[in-house]
Design a protein around this nucleic acid. Structure first.
Length: 113
DNA sequence: GGAGTGACACGGA
DNA sequence: GTCCGTGCCACTC
């Protein structure tokens, strides 16, 4: 199956692990690109986390709105259709968002096991 | 085959 | 405390 081999090709570890971690983010929690990258042992490559999400942004299975940068800023908001869709999703989960930034990030921060 | 790009993070001024 | 510049890895054109 071509699709499968293609998937495997792009799943080279990092890609697949990022998705696995993001999927594990519990309801009402958020995490950061840096934590995910660090968890994967690629702290210096936090950009890659964003890159992976960029490839998966169309899939509802990937709660990309729960992933923010180290400041709690919704840097990925611009990649969602609505201007405040990402913000609305977080608020609906009980996470306060103000000016495109998560309030009390430490309180809602979730770290990969 | 080479250069540019990207949903970030960190250090220094 | 804030702003600017640099590094990172994988993908696309």
């Amino acid at each position: 199956m071509q699709a499968f081999s293609l998937f495997m090709k792009q799943s080279s570890d990092f890609y697949d692990r990022v998705l696995a971690v993001v999927k594990q983010i519990p309801y009402g929690k958020v995490t950061t690109y840096g934590l995910i990258a660090q968890y994967l042992g690629q702290k210096k490559s936090a950009r890659m986390v964003g890159w992976v999400l960029n490839k998966q942004k169309g899939k509802p299975d990937i709660p990309a709105h729960r992933v923010v940068n180290s400041k709690g800023l919704l840097s990925g908001k611009m990649h969602f259709e609505g201007t405040n869709l990402m913000e609305q999703l977080l608020i609906s989960e009980g996470i306060p968002v103000e000016n495109n930034q998560i309030v009390n990030l430490d309180k809602y921060l979730w770290q990969p096991e």
